[in-house]
Write a protein that binds this DNA or RNA. Structure first.
Length: 429
RNA sequence: GUGAGCGUAGCUCAGUUGGUUAGAGCACCAGGUUGUGGCCCUGGGGGUCGUGGGUUCAAUUCCCAUCGCUCACCCCA
């Protein structure tokens, strides 16, 4: 049997309503904040991600699905979508048409990691990017949008974490400060952290190992070394969040794993999912557009994991989904004792006629394709939560009538077959 | 990439201290008098007990390998 690739999942009809619910909420919310949807390809030239996200990041160095196409071009399935949106922004000259572009996206992303709770190889993210302004109001707006969405899904158990990485010079300078601090303590660090000392020293803050945490407890903090502008911007973000009533924690250890971030970074974590608790994360990336060959343009954005969010909703039982239903189920009533081919053909034509006319006036309906008994058809109607059932056939049909039954109260009434207006008025109420 | 746990019907799981036709609940299908549902009752279909090999008179049950799933590390959304 051919099975789905490891780390990929089918989203089945029984689960689709929560996806639709989430997607509808996303579109409404982004509209409220005046963001426009952008759809970019799910694969891009590999160089885009290598340059955009950073060669040394885990995502690029060991998690990408990269392959050569028939013309030997190196292609990569997008592991995230900021790089793609920025590529499009540059290529399509969006910045020339509008000084500020507020964009959002929804779609699948791909990373070859070991799957676990809240982590798949094909997963879905939504996210937003605002390109063209350095205003920290937008940094805070990103957090506000994400928070708005999560709150509207009924999620509690949320923590908003924010930090500022400052401008690159500040960060480089600070890394030296940190190196100095750790120089004589290096031998006491865990093996993993000793490796990070050379590759990505800031991430040592993220270590969950006791000895590392002890050592990092007294380490100098990047926040204390921020440049004036970054510090002011960070204050604006904090004031904004306070003003709109979003609780947050400043987490000086919050370091994102993508190279393009500058100044504000943030993350919203949930206590209701497994160890992969970050529901969304983002930050400012003022140098990325230029890095990718565009005219220098500041940007800020975030991305959120949809499977993780739905997992949190599941665990908190926060969604109250309407149950699926149809308006009408048409029931074919034919005599089992005598097989009357001519009559059966007439019934079939009437089913076709009725169903298509109902659908034209936006009444959802279905009927039996398996030649089942009336009882079986009734059970089917119930399973689909049909509001009404229309019996087509039998004595009424011979008299030129249809029998309509309201399934919630069991009431039945007869109408003339050609009186479609009457049928419509009953079904529409 | 590393580690741990688990693989028995479509789903959730029992069970076999190795021995005749492997079970339940849910789901599915058909019936419960002659044309009407949701509840209930009766019956039915469906499993080479993940796959391959080994031990044995005999393996789904023991051993080995392999694949898959799950969770955690790591990383991130």
């Amino acid at each position: 049997m051919i099975k789905a690739i490891t780390g990929t999942k089918d989203i089945l009809p029984v689960d689709i309503s929560k996806w639709h619910y989430l997607e509808n909420l996303l579109r409404e919310t982004f509209h409220l904040f005046n963001y426009k949807e952008i759809r970019t390809p799910i694969f891009e030239e590999t160089a885009l991600f290598a340059r955009g996200i950073g060669e040394e990041t885990d995502i690029v160095s060991k998690e990408m699905y990269t392959f050569k196409d028939r013309s030997e071009t190196s292609i990569t399935l997008r592991p995230e979508n900021t790089a793609g949106v920025v590529r499009s922004f540059i290529e399509q000259s969006l910045g020339a048409q509008q000084s500020l572009n507020k964009l959002y996206y929804i779609g699948p992303m791909f990373r070859q990691e070991r799957p676990q709770a809240g982590r798949l190889r094909q997963f879905h993210q939504f996210g937003a990017e605002a390109l063209g302004s350095t205003s920290p109001l937008l940094d805070a707006e990103m957090i506000q949008i994400a928070y708005h969405i999560l709150k509207n899904l009924g999620l509690k158990n949320l923590v908003v974490k924010i930090n500022s990485l400052g401008i690159p010079e500040v960060r480089e300078n600070y890394k030296n400060v940190l190196r100095d601090y750790l120089k004589d303590k290096k031998d006491n660090l865990s093996e993993e952290s000793r490796r990070r000392f050379d590759t990505n020293i800031l991430r040592i803050f993220d270590s969950k190992i006791e000895v590392d945490q002890q050592i990092m407890k007294n380490a100098p903090l990047l926040l204390d070394y921020l440049d004036e502008q970054s510090k002011n911007d960070f204050d604006v973000v904090k004031n904004y969040l306070t003003k709109v009533g979003i609780p947050f924690e400043v987490d000086p250890a919050l370091v994102r794993g993508l190279d393009y971030y500058t100044k504000t970074t943030f993350e919203i974590v949930s206590g209701s999912v497994g160890s992969q608790s970050a529901l969304c994360g983002g930050g400012r990336y003022d140098l990325l557009v230029e890095e990718l060959g565009g005219k220098a343009t500041p940007g800020v954005g975030f991305a959120a994991g949809m499977e993780r969010i739905l997992l949190a909703c599941e665990n908190e039982k926060s969604l109250n989904l309407p149950q699926d239903s149809i308006d009408v189920y048409l029931i074919r009533v034919d005599s089992k004792t005598e097989q009357n081919l001519e009559l059966n053909l007439k019934l079939e034509l009437e089913l076709i006629n009725l169903s298509s006319k109902l659908r034209q006036i936006n009444i959802s309906c279905d009927y039996d394709y398996l030649n089942r008994s009336i009882k079986a058809q009734m059970r089917e109607a119930n399973k689909f939560n049909a509001k009404y059932v229309v019996f087509v056939g039998g004595d009424e049909f011979n008299r030129g009538e249809l029998n309509i039954k309201n399934l919630s109260n069991g009431e039945q009434q007869l109408i003339k077959i050609e009186d479609f207006e009457k049928l419509k008025s009953i079904l529409k109420n």
